[in-house]
Design a protein around this nucleic acid. Structure first.
Lengths: 201, 201
DNA sequence: ATCATGATCTTGACACTGTTAAGAACGCCG
DNA sequence: CGGCGTTCTTAACAGTGTCAAGATCATGAT
C-alpha cells in the first residue's frame, strides 16, 4: 500500500484532515452564531475530537479564527476578480458586489473587517490574503495611478459600503432598503467627479 | 434628620451607591479594554464588592452594559444638541462632531453602535436614549420634512461616517488621514444635492 | 522488519467567565 | 423595638481557553 492519501478517513485515533475540518466547522459555527459565539471546544465537539486536539494544528483560538478569516479573504478575492473594471460604473457595481458578499456571509464579514480581538493581522497567511483582496478591490475601484493613501474617493467609497453593511447587519437601519442600495451607492459619484475636476487630475 | 442622601459613603457592608459606581467603573474598563474585555467580575473587583453584588442592581451583565450604553447616548445627545443646524454645512459639520465623539470614546461607541451581543435594545432606558439621540441627529442632518426612511441622503451620510469611524478605530485605514476628513465627508454633498434636484423636492 | 521519533490526539487540570442559591448584614417603616 | 425587604457575601455550577502528561499512530532509519 503506497501511502493512500488520507482523504475523508475520519475514523480511528487520528482524524486524517483535522485542520481543514476544524476550519470548515468553524465557518459553519461562525455563520450560525457570529464571531463571539464560536468556541474552540464547540468546534472540536462538532468534528468529534477532544477539546485539546485543535492545539496540534493551531497555537490558539485566535489562530484558528485567523485561518477562517483567511479563507474569507480568498473567497472575496475570487468573487471580485471576474468583475469588469469599467471606470464609469465601477464604484457602485463594486459596491453592490461587496455588499452581496457581506450579506451572504455576515459572520465571516464581521470576522474579517471587525476589530482584531478575534483574528491576528500579523498572521502571515491572513495578512497576505487580506492584502491581495484589498489591493484587487482598490485596483478595480480607483482611477489608475491615483495615490490611494491621500485620495479621499476610495476611502469614502469603502467607508460608505462598510458602514452600510455594518448598519444593515446590526439592524440599525429600517428594513426594506434593498432596492435603494444602488441609489445610495451612486450618491458618492458626483462628489468624486467634482473633486477630480477641481484638482485637475 | 431628613434622609441624608447617601453620597460617597463607600464604607461598610453596604456600598451606598453601587449602581452608579458599577456604571462608572464599567465605562472606564470599557475604554481601556473594549466591549469584549469588560467582565462583570472585574467591574465588581474594581468597585470593591463581591462578584455577585452587581446582581442586586442588574439582572445580567447585558443589563449593566445597556445602562452604560444609555449614558453614551445621553452624552452624544448633549454633544449634538448645541450644534447649529445650518442646512448648507450641516452634513459635514455634524459628521465631524459625530466622528469626534466616536474617536474620543471608541469603546463606548462600539458598544452603542456595534452588534447587539453586549446590549439589549429592548431595554427601555436604552431604546429611548438611543431614539432621542438619533432623532436629534436626523433632525439636524435632514432636510426638514423629508422621509428619513426612503431618503437615501441621510442613510448614506450615516453609513459613510459610521464606516469611517469603524475603519479608523480598527486601523484598517492608513494613518495620517485626520486633515482629509472634511474633504471625505463633503464628497457626499454634490450627490445629495443632485438627487434632490432630480426629484424636485 | 523492527524501532525510535515526532506528530497527533486524549484525559485531566487550572484560572477565568456569567449566573444562581442560601444566607448574613443592613436601612427603614410599622 | 421588631420585622421586612434591599443589599451584599460566600459557595457552587457549567462553560470557556489553555497547558501538561501521557497514549496512539505514521513514518523514516537501521
Amino acid at each position: 500500500m503506497i501511502q493512500v492519501v488520507p482523504e475523508m478517513q475520519a475514523r480511528g485515533y487520528h482524524h486524517g484532515d483535522l485542520r481543514t475540518a476544524l476550519i470548515k466547522a468553524g465557518l459553519a459555527l461562525l455563520e450560525r452564531e457570529g464571531p463571539g459565539g464560536v468556541s474552540l471546544r464547540a468546534v472540536a465537539r462538532q468534528v468529534g475530537v477532544s477539546q485539546a486536539a485543535p492545539y496540534a494544528h493551531f497555537h490558539s483560538k485566535r489562530e484558528l479564527m485567523s485561518a477562517i478569516a483567511t479563507v474569507g479573504f480568498s473567497r472575496l478575492r475570487d468573487l471580485i476578480a471576474p468583475l469588469a473594471s469599467d471606470p464609469a460604473r465601477s464604484l457602485s457595481d463594486l459596491g453592490l458586489a461587496y455588499l452581496d458578499f457581506a450579506r451572504a456571509n455576515p459572520g465571516l464579514y464581521r470576522l474579517m473587517f471587525g476589530s482584531d480581538e478575534h483574528i491576528d493581522m500579523r498572521n502571515e497567511h491572513l495578512s497576505t490574503a487580506s492584502r491581495q483582496a484589498l489591493e484587487l478591490l482598490a485596483m478595480k475601484a480607483g482611477r489608475n495611478g491615483s495615490d490611494p493613501i491621500r485620495d479621499p474617493g476610495p476611502i469614502a467609497a469603502w467607508s460608505l459600503v462598510h458602514g452600510l453593511v455594518m448598519l444593515l447587519m446590526d439592524e440599525k437601519l429600517p428594513s426594506g432598503l434593498d432596492q435603494s442600495m444602488p441609489a445610495i451607492l451612486r450618491l458618492l459619484e458626483p462628489g468624486v467627479a467634482e473633486y477630480v475636476k477641481e484638482r485637475e487630475l
